[in-house]
Amino acid sequence: MTKTVWKVDQVHSEVGFSVKHMMISKAKGTFDKFDAVVEANPEDLTDAKIEVTIDTASINTRNEDRDNHLRSGDFFDSETYPNMVFVASDIKKKSADEYEVNGDLTIKDTTKPITLDVTFEGQSKDPMGGNTVAGFSGKTAINRKEFGLTWNAAVETGGVLVGEEVKINFELELHKQA
């Protein structure tokens, strides 16, 4: 099967994250605006071209004050650095539907290699228009400090307000383009 171009269905896709909050719980959120350039055979991603762009200002933790702080220079500095970008560089098939996707993640002005664990969830025909649709899920974890997201505050009981490890997860529905 040859590679084809796929477009993200925003309504049926999500990029989310979680990070320790006050050393005792997790703060969770999503990025509401993102897109991807995917050229692939969904049943064999090993030679796929994948580039994901995430709008940092679209962060949504369901708390306006926290979201504004995350958009500020203390974290993403969304005015100066409006996007995070992931570009795949090497994809290894681990099983029939699981992949290790290596690539470079750029946040602010820092680019570091990361690895995504990706699962091909299958493909189907859209009953509304007969278009081919493919599903993928995945996850990774990064150390936010390695990307220049270093702001923190001490908490009274010891420790810090925001953990260093950020767990990232995603669900993508992709539509095959004609």
Score class of each variant (00 low, 15 high):
residue 107 I to L: 10
residue 139 K to F: 00
residue 101 V to W: 01
residue 42 P to K: 05
residue 30 T to Q: 10
residue 58 S to E: 12
residue 157 T to G: 13
residue 34 F to A: 01
residue 48 A to Y: 05
residue 34 F to I: 00
residue 105 L to V: 06
residue 26 K to A: 12
residue 160 V to L: 12
residue 171 E to L: 06
residue 78 S to G: 06
residue 120 F to L: 02
residue 33 K to V: 13
residue 24 I to G: 02
residue 94 K to V: 13
residue 107 I to D: 06
residue 162 V to P: 04
residue 158 G to Y: 09
residue 116 L to Y: 08
residue 97 D to K: 13
residue 114 I to E: 01
residue 72 S to D: 11
residue 164 E to F: 11
residue 4 T to H: 13
residue 92 K to T: 14
residue 153 A to N: 07
residue 104 D to T: 14
residue 140 T to Q: 11
residue 13 S to Q: 05
residue 170 F to W: 02
residue 92 K to Q: 13
residue 171 E to G: 04
residue 80 T to K: 15
residue 46 T to S: 14
residue 77 D to A: 14
residue 149 L to W: 09
residue 16 G to A: 14
residue 174 L to P: 02
residue 47 D to L: 14
residue 156 E to W: 06
residue 43 E to C: 04
residue 136 F to C: 05
residue 173 E to I: 03
residue 18 S to P: 00
residue 80 T to L: 13
residue 37 V to R: 10
residue 177 Q to P: 06
residue 15 V to S: 03
residue 39 E to A: 04
residue 147 F to H: 02
residue 85 V to Q: 09
residue 5 V to K: 15
residue 31 F to N: 05
residue 152 N to E: 07
residue 83 N to V: 09
residue 1 M to W: 10
residue 167 K to L: 03
residue 178 A to V: 04
residue 1 M to P: 10
residue 2 T to A: 12
residue 138 G to I: 08
residue 84 M to F: 02
residue 156 E to H: 01
residue 117 D to M: 12
residue 12 H to S: 10
residue 97 D to N: 14
residue 177 Q to K: 10
residue 86 F to G: 00
residue 121 E to N: 15
residue 40 A to H: 04
residue 100 E to W: 00
residue 178 A to R: 03
residue 23 M to T: 14
residue 143 N to Y: 02
residue 109 D to M: 06
residue 41 N to V: 05
residue 137 S to Q: 08
residue 138 G to V: 04
residue 40 A to T: 11
residue 19 V to F: 08
residue 100 E to S: 15
residue 166 V to N: 06
residue 47 D to S: 15
residue 120 F to D: 06
residue 107 I to P: 05
residue 67 D to V: 12
residue 46 T to P: 06
residue 71 R to I: 12
residue 134 A to Y: 03
residue 86 F to R: 01
residue 22 M to H: 08
residue 86 F to S: 00
residue 144 R to C: 09
residue 1 M to F: 09
residue 166 V to Q: 09
residue 171 E to Q: 12
residue 46 T to C: 07
residue 67 D to Y: 09
residue 160 V to Y: 13
residue 129 G to H: 01
residue 9 D to G: 09
residue 73 G to S: 15
residue 160 V to N: 12
residue 119 T to E: 13
residue 132 T to Y: 05
residue 155 V to E: 00
residue 145 K to I: 15
residue 130 G to K: 09
residue 94 K to C: 10
residue 171 E to N: 13
residue 26 K to Q: 14
residue 81 Y to G: 03
residue 9 D to I: 09
residue 66 R to G: 04
residue 128 M to Q: 14
residue 20 K to D: 04
residue 91 I to M: 05
residue 75 F to D: 04
residue 94 K to W: 04
residue 26 K to F: 14
residue 138 G to E: 11
residue 13 S to I: 06
residue 139 K to Q: 13
residue 171 E to S: 12
residue 18 S to L: 13
residue 83 N to I: 02
residue 100 E to V: 08
residue 169 N to L: 01
residue 46 T to A: 10
residue 170 F to K: 05
residue 83 N to H: 13
residue 155 V to I: 15
residue 146 E to F: 00
residue 139 K to V: 06
residue 176 K to E: 13
residue 76 F to G: 01
residue 89 S to Y: 00
residue 157 T to D: 15
residue 162 V to F: 01
residue 56 T to E: 10
residue 113 P to L: 08
residue 122 G to N: 02
residue 41 N to F: 08
residue 37 V to W: 00
residue 137 S to E: 08
residue 58 S to N: 11
residue 120 F to V: 00
residue 2 T to P: 10
residue 66 R to C: 07
residue 119 T to H: 04
